[in-house]
Amino acid sequence: MASNPKILGYQPGQSFIHEMSGVSKLIFFILVSVSVMATYDTRLILAVALASMVLFHLSGIKWRQITFVLAFIGIFLVINLVTIYLFSPEYGVGIYESRTLLAQGWGRFTVTAEQLFYLFNVFIKYFCTVPLAILFLMTTHPSQFASSLNQIGLSYKVAYAVSLTLRYVPDLQEEYSMIKKSQEARGLELSQKAKLSQRIKGNLQIILPLIFSSLNRIETISTAMELRRFGQHPKRTWYTQQALSKIDYLAIGLSLLVLIVTLSLFALNEGRFYNPF
Rank of each mutant, 00 (worst) to 15 (best):
I211M: 13
T100D: 04
I30K: 05
E175R: 14
L210R: 03
E90D: 12
L116Q: 03
T240A: 13
L135H: 08
Q232D: 06
T223F: 02
I218Q: 03
M20T: 10
R217F: 00
R199Q: 08
Y40M: 11
V36P: 04
P12Q: 07
N4L: 02
I207K: 03
L188G: 01
E19Y: 00
Y126L: 07
S3T: 14
L8R: 03
A243L: 12
T42V: 12
K246G: 11
V48G: 06
S182D: 12
S35E: 05
V69P: 01
S197G: 12
N216A: 15
S59A: 13
Y118D: 03
T220H: 02
L149R: 09
V158N: 10
S59Y: 01
S35C: 08
F28W: 11
R272E: 06
K195W: 00
D248G: 08
L166R: 05
G94N: 12
T237V: 12
K125T: 11
M138W: 02
S197M: 09
S177W: 01
L44D: 06
R228E: 07
V169K: 01
P209T: 09
R217V: 06
A71I: 14
Q192I: 09
I218Y: 02
Y85F: 12
A113N: 02
Q115C: 01
D41W: 00
V78L: 13
G13S: 08
P276W: 01
S264Q: 14
G187Q: 08
V54E: 03
I7E: 11
V122H: 08
F230P: 09
T237K: 15
E219D: 15
T140C: 07
E90N: 04
G107M: 02
V54G: 04
S177L: 09
R99G: 02
L86R: 06
V36G: 15
E174L: 08
Y118R: 05
L208D: 04
F87N: 12
K6F: 14
S214Q: 08
T67N: 10
I252H: 01
Q151D: 12
Y176P: 03
L86A: 13
A51C: 11
L263C: 11
L81W: 00
